[in-house]
Design a protein around this nucleic acid. Structure first.
Lengths: 148, 148
DNA sequence: ATGAAAGGTTCATGTTGTCAACTGTTCAGC
DNA sequence: GCTGAACAGTTGACAACATGAACCTTTCAT
């Protein structure tokens, strides 16, 4: 039987991976800073961002963040303590706690999101057509690995 | 005088930022996992990756990682404790400590780097020409914001 | 009805991160 | 040459994040 064809690390792929690593570093730092400017931590900001689509069980948050549920407990505790989210029991299943963003939490998250859009100088180096190209490439990469 | 043209969040930019956020999340998680598989933390792996180019003063590490020097002390302590790096005084300036990867540290870092290359399924969705396109776009974004 | 399984929390522990205070070393100005 | 400012690194105290095990409550299959 053939060995699974090791995706021979061609030079372009290697370089793209490297560039992405740098991009990830940049992005991550800026996100962290933008959150800190609103005295949120990165993890808190991520949870708030998740809740923009609507209330969500703790477990679902943990899955999306790829971390242990016990970790989420603490993060939500702190967000709740500052009035950014609420916990309410799910009427359908009383084991489940639905976490929902408050108005205050929602607007904090929206502010942060918008501050990111124009803080993103790296994108300024590209013109409209190139940004569209980039968008298409990224879309295809993500759609292939995140069926959702 | 004109107001600085608020980079009116055009829909494409907004979407690109969003896609990048998702990509960053994916990449970050995979990096963290790949590091954990070698019982390294993400931060430790990042420092080892930095040292692949050669020895480096603590302060330079802190600057590159955008964190406090005191934080680097701890990370390097743990790496040193496991024989992945060494600390030696810089003969030129005895205040400075040069951190260098050992052979063991270097090969751990290389292994990790290579495991990333073919763990990067998202890239598989693109053919060679598209990967080259992506590389060019990313290069330009990064070169514009990281003069180095 | 009983017991297994699932959702959350708690506790203990380790790593990352910040900040302030401290030790050595270098270097500019006198 | 000295003195003092500035710099590199460490230490200590503390908060957030992250994991894993133990636990409680609720649900659900049998």
């Amino acid at each position: 039987m053939e060995q699974a064809p090791v995706p021979t690390a061609d030079p372009i792929t290697v370089e793209v991976v490297d560039l992405m690593a740098r991009l990830v570093g940049l992005f991550h730092r800026e996100y962290e800073e933008a959150a800190a400017a609103r005295s949120l931590t990165g993890a808190q900001a991520k949870v708030l961002a998740l809740l923009r689509r609507g209330p969500m069980p703790m477990r679902h948050i943990a899955q999306t963040l790829s971390c242990e549920p016990s970790n989420v407990t603490g993060i939500v505790d702190r967000l709740e303590g500052r009035g950014f989210v609420t916990r309410e029991a799910d009427p359908q299943d009383r084991r489940v706690k639905l976490v929902a963003a408050t108005d205050s939490g929602l607007s904090a998250s929206t502010e942060l999101r918008e501050s990111l859009n124009f803080a993103r100088e790296p994108l300024a180096a590209l013109d409209a057509a190139e940004r569209a190209q980039l968008r298409d490439l990224l879309r295809r990469m993500l759609d292939s690995s995140t069926p959702a």
